[in-house]
């Protein structure tokens, strides 16, 4: 008995097994909801994101469209390589932060707070332009130290329950936690519509949930620790198709 878990923990390092999207583990109803746009509740946010893309904002009354043109051309593939290195801050930015930067620097509009509805909508719209493309994080050596920190956080035991991400998502996936399947924790479809949230949420919201779940103190939205985890998760999910907007229970 103890053999299997010890063994699982030893040989289940990321990549030792074929990567599988969380979608594979979902029930048929949730799968259908994700796959069929006419059923997918995230479409509301997607349409709102499209409207925001075209909406003039800020001092110069410029829209995302004014600079980037047709998103289906200019944004295709962009989400597959985020988080990406930002020369100004000399660190990684996730897609939402990158959008926020354009809003403030290029549109000169008031910033949106993390997890705000307009930001989630626009991030969903931008990411959806890459739907079906393989996740392909940039091989940028400047990102390596940040990715390494994310990987260290992934295997670090935290919280009163003293558990690591790896123990659940590498060591125990395909088993059941109180009757619910544990997946490989592949971040393939963010932002997602989650039935439990009755709304959209970012990957950082999901990660903060996992941390609070083991009774750990979750870093605030936008914290470097969370972006570093996102970087490592992108490496782990390399090659899986991007699914935004995914649906999860």
């Amino acid at each position: 008995m103890r053999a299997w878990l010890a063994l699982a923990l030893v040989c289940a390092s990321a990549g030792a097994q074929p990567a599988r999207s969380g979608l594979d583990f979902m029930g048929p109803a949730t799968q259908a909801m994700q796959r069929d746009d006419s059923q997918n509740p995230a479409m509301l946010w997607l349409h709102e994101g499209q409207a925001l893309w075209n909406k003039p904002e800020g001092r110069e009354q410029r829209s995302c469209m004014s600079c980037h043109g047709d998103a289906s051309q200019s944004m295709r593939g962009v989400a597959t390589r985020y988080p990406a290195f930002d020369t100004a801050s000399q660190g990684p930015l996730n897609l939402a932060q990158r959008i926020g930067q354009c809003r403030v620097q290029h549109q000169q509009a008031t910033p949106w707070s993390p997890e705000s509805e307009p930001l989630l909508s626009l991030e969903t719209y931008v990411a959806q332009q890459s739907r079906g493309l393989p996740i392909a994080p940039a091989a940028d050596p400047r990102l390596a130290p940040f990715t390494a920190r994310g990987q260290a956080a992934y295997v670090r035991r935290i919280g009163q329950l003293d558990m690591s991400c790896a123990q659940c998502h590498d060591g125990a996936w395909d088993r059941k936690l109180a009757g619910n399947p544990i997946t490989q924790g592949q971040a393939t479809g963010y932002p997602i519509y989650r039935l439990e949230w009755q709304g959209m949420g970012s990957l950082q919201r999901r990660l903060r949930n996992c941390m609070t779940g083991v009774r750990a103190q979750a870093p605030p939205f936008g914290a470097a620790e969370l972006v570093e985890l996102e970087l490592y998760l992108a490496q782990r999910a390399r090659g899986l198709p991007l699914e935004t907007p995914a649906v999860r229970p």
Binding site: R2, L5, A6, L9, R156, I158, G159, L161, T212, A216
Partner: peptide, 19 residues
Amino acid sequence: VPGTIMPAYHRTEGLRQVG
């Protein structure tokens, strides 16, 4: 079982980032 996922139920030391 070193490395077990089962938490220690009567311990407060050696834990990180506890809420």
